[in-house]
Amino acid sequence: MSDMMDDMDGGEGVVKKFMFVNRKAPHGTVYALEGLEVVLISAAFDQDVSMVFTDDGVYELIKGMNTKGIEVKDFSKTYRALEGYDIEKLYVEKESMDARGLTEDDLIVDVTVLDSGEMASLMAEQDVVISF
């Protein structure tokens, strides 16, 4: 009942820092898609949500996917809907991009690039960290 959840907007609930860590490539396993769905659901609870992409997780954000040939949904487009869900804190680890020959220009959404040290500090600040 998302309709009811959404009517509770503006409640005085406790806001915690949630971080969702994405470390898997898309399509090969279901983790990337499931993680994204959990994040979309979490948006209904008005928490302080960040999404992190490290290791093979950076592959989730590659521009120009065409999934017709493997007959699965191209959910890379859904990352562009996150802004509408007020999820705007997207972080990508620089070392993971470097190891895969990728740059920010290869990604489908605007992200903040952090090095491992910065990422570690951000992770340490969280109340809840959930990994996919």
Binding site: D3, M5, D6, L40, A43, K73, F75, R80, A81, G84
Partner: peptide, 13 residues
């Protein structure tokens, strides 16, 4: 455009 059906408040916005 986004490959999902939006939650109602996202739809409203």
């Amino acid at each position: 455009e986004y490959q999902i059906a939006p939650a109602v408040r996202v739809l409203t916005k």
